[in-house]
C-alpha cells in the first residue's frame, strides 16, 4: 500500500517555528524606538538618511546577486535591511545622500557579498561602511546637526561637536575638563537622547528598550552587552578615579557616543561574534578595553566601531579556544 502524498526524510520531523527572517525582523523591531527618537530629534534628515541607506543596501545586494554572482536572491531574509538601518544609525543626519550610497555599497558589496554573503562575512558590514566613510570624509562624518532645532533642515543644518569630541579636543590641547564641563551635555540628556550625534546612538533609553526586547526574544544573550559595558565602565572608572580632572566619569562614557548602540546591536551581530558564552565574554572584554583606549589615548573621540572591527578579526581565533564543554569531558580552562 503506497501513498502518493507520503514523504520520507531523516529525523527530526518537527521544526521550531523560527526562521532567519524572524530573527532579522526582531532586530528591526528592536531598533524602532531609537529610530523614532532619531526622527523626533533630526526630523527629515533621519528619514532621508535611513531610507537611502536601507534602499541602497537592499538594491546593491539584489544587483550583485542577480547580475554578478548569479546566485539565488536572498534579499527576502531582511539582513540587508538590518545592515542599512544600522549603517544609517551610525551617520550624522545631514550627510550628503551620495555618501550614504557609497557607504551602503562598501557595507554590502565589500564587507558582505565579497566574503560570500550573509553568514560568511568576517567584519560587521554596517561598521565597515561607517568606518570607510569616516576615514574618507572625516569632516562631513564628524559635523553633527544640533538636535530638535534642525528638524525641518537637511543640508543646511546647524552643526556642533559631540561631548566626546569636545573632551578629545580639550585633552589634545592639554586643558583640564573643568574648563569645558559647562558645555558638555548632562547625563540625563544623554540618557534621553537630547544631544548631538549619529542618528541612532542618541537615546540610551530607547536603545536599552530595544536591547531588552532582543534579550527577551532570545535573539541575543546578555554576555556581550553586559561584559562590554562593564569592562568599559571599570576601565574608564579607574582612569577617572586616578585623575577626575583629566578623564570623564564612567557613567558619561557609557551614555555618550555609540557604546550602547555598539553593545546591543553591533557587537552582538551573530555572524561576526563568537558562539559560546565564554567566547562572547572574551570578545566583549576586548571591545571594552580597546574602546576606552581609543577614547582616552587615540586620535578619534569615539572608538566603539574600531574596537568592534578589531575584535571581529579575532573571532575565528576566539572560537578555536572557546569551544563548548563536551559532555563527558573533564572541565578544563581553554580560555587563553
Amino acid at each position: 500500500m503506497e501513498h502518493q502524498n507520503i514523504i520520507i526524510s531523516a529525523s527530526p520531523h518537527l521544526h521550531d517555528a523560527s526562521s532567519t527572517q524572524k530573527v532579522m525582523r526582531d532586530v528591526i523591531i528592536a531598533l524602532t524606538p531609537a529610530l523614532l527618537v532619531g526622527v523626533y530629534l533630526f526630523g527629515v534628515g533621519t528619514l532621508i538618511i535611513t531610507a537611502t541607506a536601507i534602499i541602497s543596501c537592499v538594491l546593491f545586494e539584489y544587483l550583485i546577486q542577480k547580475y554578478w554572482l548569479r546566485k539565488p536572491l536572498t534579499i527576502n531574509d531582511y539582513s540587508a535591511v538590518v545592515t542599512g538601518l544600522l549603517l544609517a544609525f551610525n551617520l550624522p543626519s545631514n550627510l550628503p545622500i551620495w555618501m550614504v550610497v557609497v557607504g551602503s555599497l562598501v557595507a554590502i558589496g565589500v564587507a558582505k557579498m565579497s566574503f560570500g554573503g550573509l553568514g560568511f562575512n568576517i567584519f560587521n558590514p554596517a561598521l565597515i561602511g561607517r568606518v570607510f566613510l569616516l576615514i574618507s570624509f572625516p569632516v562631513q562624518m564628524t559635523s553633527w546637526p544640533l538636535p530638535i532645532v534642525n528638524r525641518m533642515q537637511y543640508a543646511d543644518a546647524i552643526t556642533g561637536a559631540t561631548s566626546l569630541g569636545m573632551v578629545k579636543e580639550a585633552s589634545l590641547m592639554g586643558e583640564p575638563l573643568s574648563q569645558i564641563s559647562s558645555q558638555l551635555t548632562t547625563q540625563m540628556d544623554l540618557f534621553m537622547g537630547i544631544t548631538g550625534g549619529s542618528i541612532g546612538e542618541m537615546s540610551a533609553l530607547a536603545l536599552l528598550i530595544g536591547g531588552l526586547y532582543l534579550l527577551i526574544r532570545k535573539v541575543i544573550t546578555w554576555h556581550i552587552p553586559v561584559v562590554f559595558l562593564l569592562t568599559m565602565f571599570a576601565m574608564s572608572g579607574i582612569f577617572w578615579w586616578v585623575d577626575p580632572q583629566q578623564y570623564l566619569n564612567p557613567v558619561f562614557h557609557l551614555l555618550a557616543g555609540g557604546a550602547i548602540l555598539g553593545a546591543f546591536y553591533m557587537a552582538t551581530d551573530m555572524v561576526t561574534s563568537p558562539m559560546t558564552p565564554k567566547g562572547m565574554m572574551v570578545f566583549a572584554f576586548g571591545i571594552g578595553v580597546i574602546t576606552v583606549l581609543i577614547r582616552l589615548f587615540g586620535a578619534y573621540p569615539e572608538g566603539v566601531s574600531f574596537a568592534i572591527l578589531i575584535m571581529n578579526a579575532f573571532v575565528p581565533l576566539i572560537k578555536t579556544y572557546t569551544k563548548p564543554k563536551r559532555f563527558g569531558e573533564p572541565i578544563r580552562a581553554k580560555i587563553l
Partner: peptide, 26 residues
C-alpha cells in the same frame, strides 16, 4: 503543516545549535 520545513539557508552563526546540543558539540 507540521512536516513543512523551509528551504535551507546560509548559517548565520546564531549559535542556537550549540546552545541546544546536549553533548556540547558545535
Amino acid at each position: 503543516v507540521e512536516a513543512e520545513r523551509g528551504p535551507a539557508m546560509s548559517c548565520i552563526k546564531c549559535a542556537r545549535c550549540i546552545s541546544v546540543c546536549p553533548m556540547g558539540l558545535e
